[in-house]
Design a protein around this nucleic acid. Structure first.
Lengths: 169, 169
DNA sequence: TAAGATTGACTCTTCAATCTTC
DNA sequence: GAAGATTGAAGAGTCAATCTTA
C-alpha cells in the first residue's frame, strides 16, 4: 500500500487545473487520463496484493497461475507466458521460480523444442488458484464501486488506448 | 518496456470469456476492468520512462518535480510530497536523493518544524521540468489515440473508482 | 545466426527498525 | 509517546550478457 491518508480533494483535478493555467490545455486531459490510470493501478495493485498475501501470491504470480490453469494442457512454454502477460523473460523466470518453490508449478523440458521449458500447474496450484480467485472476486473484482455499465465503458475505453499503444492487433 | 510482440487478439477479452465460462460472471467485468487498468499502466509507464530517459528522469521523479514546481514557494515538506503523490516516505526519500544528486532539487531544514525537511526545486530543476513536460505533452499526453471526449470519460470513470477505493475525500 | 531461458547488476518500492524532534 | 525522515533488507522489474539448442 502506497501511502495511507485520504486527501480532501482530487489531486488529479488539481493537476489538470495547473496544466491549463500553464497554457498546456491541449494535453491537459491526456495528462489527467494518464495520471488517473497510474493512480488507479497503484490502488488496485495494493488491494490485490493484500488479498493475495494470504495465499503467498503476488498479482503477477496470480496472473501466471490463472493463465496456466486456463491453458489446454495446464502447461505452457515460458516464452508464451511472457508474451501473453507482456512481461520480460527475466520476470517470467523469477515468477516461475517462486511458484515452483511454493509447489504450485513444476518445470518440464519442452518435448517439442529442446531449448524450451514448460511451466505446468500442479494439483496444489489449481487448488490455490481456485481459492485465490474466490477471494479476488469477492474482495476486489466485484467491489470496485462502479456499475456493470460503467465497468464496460472503462474496459472499452482502455481497449482503444491499449490498441493505439500497440498492445494487440 | 515489458514484452515486445503485439498479440493478434485482445488477451483481456479472452480472460473475460474464461471467467464467464467458469461461472464467475458476476465479477467478470470487474476482472476485465482491473486487468485493463494494470495493462494500460504498464504501456504508459514504459512510454513515459522512455521519453523521460533523455532527461535522466523516471515518471515517479517527474511527478515530484512537477509537484514542487507547482507549489507556492517551489518547496514542500517531504511528507507533503508523499501524501500528494500517495507514495511511501521511503520512496520520497529515494526520489529526492536522486533529484538532489542530479542538481534538480535541494534539501533544506523546515523552519516551521525541526524534525522536517523541505525539498526545493532549483533553477536547473525548473528548466529540466519545462523541457521534460514539453516532451511528455507531445509524445505521451497528446497522443494517446483517444478523443478529448473519450479522455474525459476515462478520467471521470476512474475518478469514481479512485474515490470508492479511498484515494480522496 | 537466432531463439529460449537464465543470471547478475541496477532500479524502484515496501516494510520494519531507528534517530531526532515535537 | 508520536510524527518526520532515514536506513537496510527483501521483492519484483528491466537490461545486458551468457549458455544451450535449433
Amino acid at each position: 500500500v502506497r501511502g495511507r491518508a485520504s486527501l480532501s480533494f482530487d489531486p488529479i483535478a488539481e493537476a489538470e487545473r495547473q496544466w491549463r493555467a500553464h497554457g498546456w490545455s491541449e494535453s491537459a486531459k491526456g495528462m489527467s487520463a494518464v495520471t488517473s490510470i497510474m493512480r488507479a493501478q497503484q490502488l488496485l495493485l495494493a488491494r490485490a496484493d493484500e488479498v493475495l498475501r494470504a495465499f503467498e501470491l503476488t498479482f503477477a504470480r496470480y496472473e501466471v497461475l490463472m493463465l496456466l490453469s486456463f491453458s489446454r494442457r495446464g502447461a505452457l512454454p515460458l516464452g508464451k507466458v511472457g508474451e501473453r502477460l507482456q512481461v520480460n523473460p527475466a520476470s517470467v523466470t523469477n515468477a516461475i521460480d517462486r511458484l515452483e518453490s511454493a509447489g504450485l508449478v513444476t518445470r518440464k523440458p519442452n518435448p517439442r523444442d529442446g531449448r524450451g521449458t514448460l511451466a505446468a500447474i500442479s494439483g496444489h496450484g489449481r487448488a490455490v488458484a481456485g481459492r485465490a480467485t474466490e477471494a479476488m472476486n469477492q474482495e476486489v473484482f466485484a467491489t470496485l464501486g462502479l456499475s456493470e455499465r460503467q465497468l464496460g465503458e472503462t474496459v472499452a475505453l482502455l481497449r482503444h488506448l491499449r490498441r493505439a499503444a500497440g498492445d494487440f492487433q
